[in-house]
Design a protein around this nucleic acid. Structure first.
Length: 557
RNA sequence: UGGGGCGUGGUGCAAUGGUAGCACAGCGGCCUUUGGAGCCGUUUAUCCUGGUUCGAGUCCAGGCGCCCCGGCCA
């Protein structure tokens, strides 16, 4: 999975340094620690590939640990979805663990810190705590309760746990330094009262550890060697180290890296949740979503995501990956494996005037003509009436337009050469059908006289065409950076109204019986995925995974 | 009284004192029964100013710019 020829990241160097010096006895044990408050997205894929990939590379282990310290936001649904997504991405964890597994131990350690005079119960309100914390440039002030006796703290903390107090009436805080320039060290909250039921511990607790209090110790308990996290936790590292040292327990090495940003989308659980809740998408697995379930539903293969993670690298500089790189990786992943077939997305009728009315000419065409070592034939019928792509005909074409136009000849892919002789129009002047004559000597696609045509277009036989719903997905946001919204608006204002176009396409008959989950390249168009839920043999429904590059379209801009 | 990070082509990632390289994007060309596969070529970069050194993207000093931190979120 980890390509040994790929450039190693600064994290690899740190791990190798540890292995050289024996800091962890050569052990490498990482963890992927999601909070089950939403679905995993492509940014998580980067983290998953990093954590699991690192362990695999050095013969180590990776835990899956849910940081379930906030029962007001977390749900079992998310736990299940996260596990499915990690497995789908191709990783198997050494152990499935939960921060809530350690609630008992964490409580004992909190008592230990109280006994050492390193934690105290504070009666200040949330607003007061904030006010006492000071500002970025001014020191905070000590809470009036900071000097409570150990026995009073012990008593109060026990009563917090027993449910005697209301939410927000008291917290347990670490006693560190209210004047520290590191704001996280200004007596951070360790426990808050939350009279909420927890997905795993039910009503056993009414005080819950904060993430800051739970995370480092959870890593320590699991014997994690390298706690890899995103940049914003760099400021928390001194706090985690303070807890670990105060407790005298195993100290992992925290290493921070820059989270993934992707152009033309948002990669944040909070914002993705909004898209779902406000109905801008059909759900977490809407194929336009950058979630793993959305990408999966669209037809992206996990191999492609792993290759993408490898390719974007890991560093500490904030950066935004151009979605074009993702799309390139998707095409690259599919180009060898996907069989080719013909499908017309926006049909225009063509009549081959010199083709006998009732004749059907069958061609044997290889699904894998692009691949040298694989062959699988299907039968493709040609008849007098066919459909081509509307884009493949122009009545008044610009120069260098190599497709069909009055007087121009093209190759009907896999079939024959055909030249346009005229058009039919409706009352409004819209072309409703195109007339051609085909060259009977060119059956198979080559002219016996060796004449060349510059354009080759795809088509389907009208009487054999299979109508199918095809969903054309475009970027969810039309702008590179959705955050750059007009004054007074937010990223929602940048949603791309054309992010989903549904068309009734006409497929060649061999595609009628595709199984849900099959992937094809619709020639000259893109890669498509038979929707695993909505498609059925005889009634195919396709999602566009990614379009092919289109240099003609680009040239026309 | 502030602290922590980060600055290399358009976008990402390398170069660990010794020829600034790779990918994507762009541009040009070749080829083509996918104009869209493929192939070849190519434009573009070390934040600034000093210093150390035979030699600096890399080391030092001082600036500048950007990101993060004042949740009982994670």
């Amino acid at each position: 999975m980890t390509d040994s020829t790929a450039p190693k990241s600064f994290i690899h160097e740190i791990v190798e340094e540890h292995n050289r010096t024996g800091r962890f006895g050569g052990r490498v044990h990482t963890r992927f620690p999601p909070e089950p408050n939403g679905y995993l997205h492509i940014g998580h894929a980067k983290s998953i590939c990093l954590n699991f990939g690192l362990a695999q590379h050095y013969g180590g282990l990776t835990n899956l640990r849910f940081d379930d310290t906030n029962p007001t936001k977390e749900e079992q649904e998310y736990i299940d979805a996260i596990k499915e997504d990690v497995r789908w991405l191709g990783f198997d964890w050494h152990a499935e663990l939960y921060a809530s597994d350690y609630f008992g131990q964490l409580y004992e350690w909190a008592v230990e810190l109280i006994r050492k005079g390193l934690a105290y119960v504070d009666d200040l309100s949330p607003d007061e705590i904030r006010a006492y914390r000071g500002s970025l440039t001014e020191p905070g002030r000590n809470s009036p309760h900071r000097g409570r006796s150990i026995s009073e703290n012990l008593d109060l903390f026990e009563r917090m746990k027993a449910g005697e107090f209301d939410e927000e009436s008291r917290v347990l805080r670490a006693r560190i330094d209210m004047a520290s320039p590191i704001i996280n060290l200004r007596d951070p909250v360790m426990y808050r009262i939350l009279k909420a039921s927890h997905p795993r511990t039910g009503d056993a607790w009414c005080i819950y550890p904060t993430y800051d209090w739970a995370h480092g110790q959870s890593d320590s308990i699991e014997g994690i060697t390298h706690s890899i996290c995103t940049l914003e936790f760099e400021n928390h590292r001194p706090l985690y180290e303070w807890f670990i040292q105060s407790l005298g327990i195993h100290a992992p090495q925290q290493i921070e890296f820059a989270r993934l940003n992707l152009s033309h989308t948002v990669v944040s659980k909070r914002k993705l949740l909004r898209l779902v809740n406000e109905g801008h998408v059909s759900g977490w697995d809407d194929p336009r979503m950058p979630t793993l379930s959305g990408l999966r539903r669209r037809g992206v293969r996990p191999e492609a995501l792993r290759a993408f993670a490898e390719r974007i690298g890991v560093a500490k500089a904030n950066s935004t990956i151009d979605v074009a790189l993702l799309e390139h990786t998707l095409r690259e992943d599919l180009e060898d494996s996907a069989p080719r077939a013909m499908a017309v997305l926006r049909p225009l009728k063509v009549i081959l005037d010199n083709f006998p009315e009732d004749k059907v000419e069958w061609f044997d065409v290889d699904f894998y003509r692009h691949a040298e070592n694989r062959e699988e034939l299907r039968r493709v019928p040609l008849t007098r009436e066919i459909y081509i792509e509307q884009d493949d005909f122009m009545e008044n074409p610009p120069p260098k337009y190599f497709r069909l136009a009055p007087g121009q000849e093209v190759r009907l892919m896999n079939a024959c050469l055909a030249a346009c002789t005229g058009v039919e129009k409706d009352a409004a002047g819209v072309v409703t059908a195109v007339h051609c004559t085909y060259d009977p000597a060119s059956l198979g696609g080559q002219a016996p006289d060796g004449r060349r045509v510059k354009g080759t277009i795809h088509w389907v036989s009208a009487p054999h065409a299979v109508p199918a719903e095809v969903r054309l997905y475009n970027p969810l946001f039309a702008v590179e950076n959705p955050e750059e919204a007009p004054e007074g608006e937010d990223f929602i204002a940048n949603l791309n109204p054309q992010s989903l176009e549904v068309v009734t396409a006409l497929l060649e008959p061999a595609l009628a019986q595709v199984r849900p989950g099959d992937r094809y390249q619709f020639v000259r168009s893109g890669y498509f995925f038979a929707d695993p839920q909505d498609s059925a043999p005889g009634k195919p429904v396709f999602n566009r995974i990614v379009g092919l590059r289109d240099s003609w379209a680009k040239q026309q801009k």
